[in-house]
């Protein structure tokens, strides 16, 4: 990339956020509205609230629960997806049920899960798993079903069977769809992390934001919302980075197919 290209790209990426931020800044600059404090006030409280001990007592626990729930959902979703995708009979039986479960909005499961898992970390992790696993599961099933027949025959004729087949053919072949499911699951996971903490918790981002709102600490509340936005953005950047590395072959293949 040339210098010009880098500058252009940076401008493209940062352009709209900067404009929106500026709009927010100037629109609220002289605000005396209690509920919509000036952005300057919000940023000031952002520095105060989220850099000290709250980082350890609220942000880190939230992120740990998100990580645990998300990773568990990946394991369960991919594992189940492989079984369902590879066994036609299993698929025929399970697919309608899976679609039904998927259609249930995960937040309504929070009270249900609270009944048997309590209000601790287990409940929050389970809520995240219960929402994140569906897109991963269903995309994995699709990916496994779409594994190329010729490649499958090739594996068979070379005696690549069992775990070797699973590892080198099925998982890798389905990986583009699995990654798509994981990307959808990430944003669901962030939402559920916050929601589960709003219901019942003693720490965490969702809990803190609700606390601020209830104690009318409005700039602090807004700063929490801002932090969530930034976190979501950073996580999706991280995801993109990891995806670009792991799926380089797929992007290359797609480019090659577009310009033969």
């Amino acid at each position: 990339m040339t210098v010009v290209a880098v500058v252009r790209r940076t401008l493209l990426v940062l352009g709209l956020p900067v404009v929106l931020f500026a709009l927010w800044w100037f629109a609220t600059a002289d605000s005396t509205d209690f509920y919509f404090p000036p952005l300057a006030t919000i940023l000031e409280s952002f520095g105060k609230v989220w850099t000290g001990e709250r980082l350890l007592s609220d942000v880190v626990p939230s992120l740990l629960r998100l990580t645990a729930g998300y990773l568990l959902a990946v394991v369960v979703g991919v594992g189940l997806g492989l079984v369902v995708g590879m066994r036609r009979t299993v698929r025929d039986y399970l697919e309608p049920v899976l679609e039904l479960f998927r259609a249930i909005p995960p937040p309504v499961l929070v009270p249900v899960i609270m009944l048997f898992a309590g209000i601790g970390d287990t409940m929050k992790v389970l809520v995240i798993v219960s929402g994140c696993m569906w897109p991963i599961l269903l995309n994995t099933v699709e990916g496994v079903r779409a594994v190329d027949e010729v490649l499958s025959d090739t594996c068979r004729s070379y005696g690549i069977t069992g775990t070797a087949r699973l590892r080198h053919l099925v998982l890798r072949g389905a990986s583009p769809q699995i990654v798509t499911g994981m990307r959808q699951a990430l944003s669901i996971g962030i939402i559920l992390m916050v929601i589960s903490e709003m219901f019942a918790a003693s720490n965490g981002l969702g809990f803190t934001i609700v606390q601020f709102q209830r104690s009318f600490a409005i700039p602090e509340m807004w700063s929490g919302v801002l932090l969530l936005g930034v976190l979501g953005f950073l996580l999706s950047l991280l995801f993109r980075f990891a995806e670009n590395r792991a799926m380089a072959w797929y992007h290359g293949l797609r480019r090659a197919q577009r310009n033969p």
């Binding site: 190329d148 027949e149 010729v150 490649l151 025959d153 090739t154 068979r156 004729s157 070379y158 005696g159 690549i160 080198h168 053919l169 890798r172 072949g173 990986s175 072959w249 797929y250 293949l253």
Partner: peptide
């Protein structure tokens, strides 16, 4: 599929592992 038999298919684009380099494709079997 008997051992000692290899098959080359018409659809080369679909019989190679797109996620492996040439060397690994040849080495896997």
């Amino acid at each position: 599929p008997p051992p000692g038999m290899a098959v080359v298919f018409q659809e080369y684009g679909r019989s190679l592992f797109a996620w492996m380099n040439v060397r690994d494709n040849v080495a896997l079997p």
